[in-house]
Design a protein around this nucleic acid. Structure first.
Length: 267
DNA sequence: CCCCAGGCGACTC
DNA sequence: GAGTCGCATGGG
């Protein structure tokens, strides 16, 4: 499939903004993996070209059915947010698989993004279906074949127990479909009842895995963004304050600000 | 080498 | 309910 370029979609910004971990970039060519799908993404002067196994899947996954001009218009606020939008205007919030998102963000806690990628990669390679060129993200049944000791052995650190226990839980409870019907507050409570899932991981899963935009994940970077305006406010309280302020635009604004702050550090 | 990372559960008060 | 603290690991 081909996607005409526009200023509200940029593949590099969308993948580099920290919401997804299974992709590589080489010489401007992106390889993106989601569940058991793969897309090779190249670009020419006026379009992105997707060589993939399922156009409809990636059309939805990359959120091309949402009008980001409207999202951006509703989000323009003070100077900081306008600057962040100007910087990351091409970000789309991906519509990721809930299970893949839960396990990915369990690994993300107190961890660096490069290392998160490598741990997820080892889990896919060891447990996921062989798709030829790559390995799929494992099913919960596949994840549940391993115990905490194994997850520690592939470098998961202290999160190994979280992964093992949740793999067992979801293998025994096919409950994602039921959860997806719940309103955001109730769904967050379900997620936070999982061992190893706190407010931050739950909010990332709500945003990236359940397409809930009335959430504002607060991590160390977002704390830095707001340390002047909200000095010494703990992460969970700050998250609640920001959702009160930004409502249904919270998830988008959070992502623009995260990308803005993190790229600033890189430069 | 030290510092820190898309935080969490356990513990204390 | 709010405030500390230890945690496994490896990239920078």
């Amino acid at each position: 499939m081909k996607i005409k370029k526009c200023d509200t979609f940029n593949i590099k910004q969308t993948l580099d903004c920290g919401q997804v971990f299974r992709y590589t970039e080489k010489d401007g060519v992106f390889d993106l993996y989601a569940i058991n799908h793969h897309a090779k993404i190249t670009e020419n002067d006026d379009e992105y070209v997707f060589e993939c196994d399922d156009d409809a899947f990636f059309q939805k996954y990359l959120d091309f059915d949402t009008n980001y001009d409207i999202i951006i218009a509703k989000s323009q606020d003070k100077a900081l947010i306008s600057s962040a939008i100007a910087f990351g205007r091409g970000i789309h919030i991906l519509r990721q698989d809930p299970i893949e998102t839960i396990f990915s963000f369990l690994i993300s806690q107190n961890n660096h993004i490069p290392r998160i990628k490598s741990i997820i990669g080892r889990i896919c390679d060891a447990l996921g279906d062989d798709m030829g060129e790559y390995h799929a993200f494992p099913t919960v049944q596949q994840l549940a074949t391993k115990d905490a000791e194994w997850y520690a052995s592939i470098g998961a650190g202290y999160r190994a127990e979280y992964l093992a226990r949740n793999a067992k839980f979801f293998a025994e409870n096919d409950i994602i479909g039921e959860w997806s019907k719940l309103p955001t507050e109730e769904l967050r409570a379900k997620l936070m009842s999982l061992y190893g899932v706190g407010r931050k991981v739950a909010d990332c899963v709500l945003l990236f895995g359940f397409a809930r935009y009335d959430v504002f994940p607060v991590d160390t970077w977002i704390l830095k963004v707001f340390e002047q305006d909200y000095p010494a406010v703990p992460a969970e309280k700050l998250s609640k304050l920001l959702v009160e302020k930004y409502g249904e635009m919270s998830g988008f604004i959070q992502q623009w600000l995260f990308y803005f702050k993190r790229e600033e550090k890189k430069l």
